[in-house]
């Protein structure tokens, strides 16, 4: 009996490890190579590759913004409405703060709640300044702090496939939500 259990155990161990090791290697241009740590609106800390496996719609904003950010947030909501609800567990709509000092997890949670973005597919992230700058560069996003409370920044919404490769970017306000959502649906369907 003991021996049988031992063999069984060995088998399970072998199988469970083998499964992990055969996971596909990350593509060279994947954003999941970034090792920076992030905090979300639920006060969880993790590196970006925790989101691996999901199709990501990403935008950078800051919650005290009164000009273009509300439009970007509205764009994200329009995109969400056109994603098939059945896909929600395979999609993350990610809003990354360019003002990590002000945008604490509590503040992000409040922002999410007020904006009706508290479903699990919504992820609000903040990190430190260096990681934020690096991430902005990965999105080719320009930003500059122009006063203690305000930033100038480019308006870009990006879509990444489950391996973290950039597959679509839409720039400017009034982006084509249908096109972005279409890309998301197509990506989830084929992955």
């Amino acid at each position: 009996m003991k021996q049988l259990l031992f063999i069984l155990t060995a088998g399970i161990l072998f199988f469970s490890c083998g499964q992990n090791n055969t996971k596909k290697e990350l593509p060279s241009d994947s954003i999941f190579h970034l090792t920076s740590q992030w905090q979300d609106q639920r006060n969880q800390s993790y590196p970006l590759n925790t989101l691996r496996g999901k199709t990501l719609v990403v935008v950078m904003i800051y919650t005290s913004c009164k000009t273009a950010c509300p439009i970007l947030v509205a764009d994200m909501k329009r995109i969400e409405r056109q994603i098939r609800p059945a896909y929600f567990d395979k999609v993350s709509l990610v809003l990354v703060s360019i003002d990590p000092e002000t945008d604490t997890p509590e503040r992000l949670a409040e922002f999410a709640k007020t904006g009706g973005m508290d479903a699990p597919q919504w992820v609000f992230l903040r990190s430190n300044e260096a990681a934020t700058q690096e991430f902005a560069n990965v999105l080719s996003m320009k930003y500059k702090k122009i006063s203690p409370v305000d930033f100038s920044h480019s308006n870009i919404i990006s879509v990444f496939n489950p391996d973290g490769e950039l597959i679509l970017q839409e720039e400017g306000t009034g982006i084509n939500a249908e096109k972005v959502a279409g890309k998301v649906n197509e990506t989830v369907r084929s992955s």
Binding site: C65, T67, A68, C69, K142, K144, I146, D150, F151, S152, H153, S154, N155, E171, G172, T173, G174
Partner: peptide, 12 residues
Amino acid sequence: SDNNLFCAGSAT
């Protein structure tokens, strides 16, 4: 030239 691309762009 394009205020749509940037938020609060004219400050610079």
